[in-house]
């Protein structure tokens, strides 16, 4: 036995005296991954799990009230029918925002891909995406400057038509949708543009040489081929929009009551954390269902 180990050591030593024992691959991989996934566990996964538990509690565990586990917060939509209306409002706002983003964003991506080249295209792309990376809150605030009574919009309209009254529509649902479209349009342009940029020019030239008009090319070639980008853009617009609360609050005022603001209220005003948690998880279920439905397209749409 002993001579064996000595022999092995000697063999290892003679092959390359300087070579150290290599770190096993799995140790290195784990060491590389552990900090990131540890952090994500602490900051995202455990919180979601805790909130799931909270959503079954009868009251916020802060005072001396004994806590009982209950399903009542998940029945909120039945017990408090006004929540159905609020959820509907959120869905309607999400629908219109997504639709408007899809139409204007797709056309912008087509214009970018077909009507510009080289440096001009690069510059335009950066300019179109830049607002997206600036503070969303500040951009929403900017719209109040434009839409308020005697704001920029009123000023421009009165310069052209001095007799007309105020056209201000701040604190309406239109204002909320406008602010949200402003927020998510750059994203839709990007996903559509990525999908469109993979299309071979020869297809379009072939269609044109065979006599296809521009609207035929747009609707029968570009639209179907850009569909993955359009769908992933739509999903990634709709999901944050139905969870938004600061846009409805600032641009909607009193009419800006959505699922997002109701959830926020439970945590900041009403201190009914379990109800807020249950509503959050209901929203999360909707979000996950949307992601699951479109997972195939999303994977293709974002890696294309």
């Amino acid at each position: 036995m002993r001579s064996d180990t000595i022999l092995n050591d000697a063999a290892r030593g003679s092959s390359d005296p300087r070579q150290r024992r290599p770190i096993p691959a799995w140790v290195a991989t784990t060491a590389l991954l552990l900090p990131t996934y540890g952090w994500l566990t602490l900051a995202v996964l455990l919180p979601l799990l805790t909130m799931f538990v909270f959503s079954f509690m009868s009251a916020t565990p802060m005072g001396k009230t004994p806590i009982v586990f209950t399903l009542k917060h998940y029945r909120a939509f039945i017990d408090q029918p006004y929540l159905i209306n609020i959820a509907w409002t959120s869905l309607v706002i999400g629908f219109w925002t997504t639709l408007l983003c899809a139409v204007f964003g797709f056309l912008a991506a087509v214009a970018l891909a077909r009507a510009t080249v080289g440096r001009m295209r690069e510059t335009l792309l950066v300019l179109l995406l830049l607002p997206f990376w600036t503070n969303g809150l500040v951009r929403v605030f900017s719209w109040t400057m434009v839409l308020r009574e005697n704001g920029f919009l009123d000023g421009v309209v009165h310069m052209l038509l001095p007799d007309i009254g105020s056209v201000s529509f701040l604190y309406t649902r239109y204002a909320i949708v406008l602010g949200l479209v402003h927020g998510y349009l750059p994203y839709m342009i990007l996903t559509c543009y990525i999908a469109l940029s993979t299309i071979d020019d020869a297809i379009i030239e072939a269609a044109a040489s065979l006599g296809a008009r521009w609207w035929t090319i747009l609707l029968r070639i570009l639209l179907p081929l850009a569909a993955p980008g359009l769908i992933s853009g739509a999903v990634l617009t709709f999901v944050p929009v139905i969870g938004s609360f600061m846009e409805p609050r600032i641009l909607g005022g009193k009419v800006g009551v959505t699922m997002g603001t109701v959830i926020e209220d439970q945590f900041t005003q009403a201190f009914n954390w379990p109800l807020g948690a249950a509503l959050s998880f209901t929203l999360l279920a909707v979000v996950l269902a949307i992601f699951a439905t479109f997972s195939g397209v999303l994977r293709r749409g974002t890696t294309a």
């Binding site: 455990l46 919180p47 979601l48 909130m51 139905i242 997002g260 926020e264």
Partner: peptide, 12 residues
């Protein structure tokens, strides 16, 4: 949505 992540962090 950050609203969900944010409230979950607050609770945890």
């Amino acid at each position: 949505p950050w609203l969900i992540t944010g409230t979950a962090m607050l609770v945890f």
